[in-house]
């Protein structure tokens, strides 16, 4: 029973470890902004923590550079289950403007499994809050895959585009 209670409490007390994997700081600043008075993510029990051991959420901002990738892996290993990975910003979602440069491996999901994507360059604090609310189940998703023609969803779900190799570089 306590197990179920704990699971219930999980989304209400998300502690966030913020991992910058090579971002330009824009997203990082907005992430901090979300904790400040106007947006106050602590309303939802969200806190930034200093050690990955305390974290429930790894918040990745920035494209994953080649240098940081192994550290990011170790970081994820250092977080106790259950855990969520949230990619904040266009770089973390898909590699941003440097998605194919020699210094970058791509978005966060190229290296670690990602649970939530919050696009934006940088996402507004409201957009990040929206992502949080989505994770908490407070709001419903507003974007869906816009396939303006008849193509199968599975193909996209595999992350592979027929058009240009790996869909995101």
């Amino acid at each position: 029973m306590l197990k179920r209670l704990c699971a219930k409490a999980f989304p209400k007390a998300l502690w966030v470890y913020h991992a910058n994997t090579g971002a330009c700081n824009g997203c990082d600043i907005e992430v901090i902004d979300v904790l400040t008075p106007y947006y106050d993510a602590e309303r939802f029990g969200i806190r930034l923590v200093g050690s990955p051991r305390h974290a429930d959420v790894v918040l990745v901002s920035g494209p994953v550079t080649r240098q940081v990738a192994s550290a990011l892996h170790r970081l994820l290993d250092a977080v106790p289950e259950p855990k969520l990975v949230v990619a904040v910003g266009s770089c973390a979602c898909g590699g941003g403007a440097w998605f194919d440069s020699y210094g970058v491996l791509g978005g966060a999901d190229q290296v670690i499994p990602v649970d939530y994507y919050v696009p934006g360059c940088p996402p507004r604090p409201e957009a990040i809050l929206y992502g949080i609310a989505l994770a908490l189940g407070l709001v419903s998703k507003q974007v869906v895959c816009e396939r303006l023609s008849q193509e199968s969803l599975e193909e996209l779900a595999q992350g592979v585009s027929r058009y240009g190799g790996v869909s995101d570089g």
Binding site: A71, R74, D77, P80
Partner: peptide, 10 residues
């Protein structure tokens, strides 16, 4: 779970 010590990723 047993894990190595966390020293910042390196």
């Amino acid at each position: 779970r047993h894990v190595p010590v966390w020293t910042g990723g390196e």
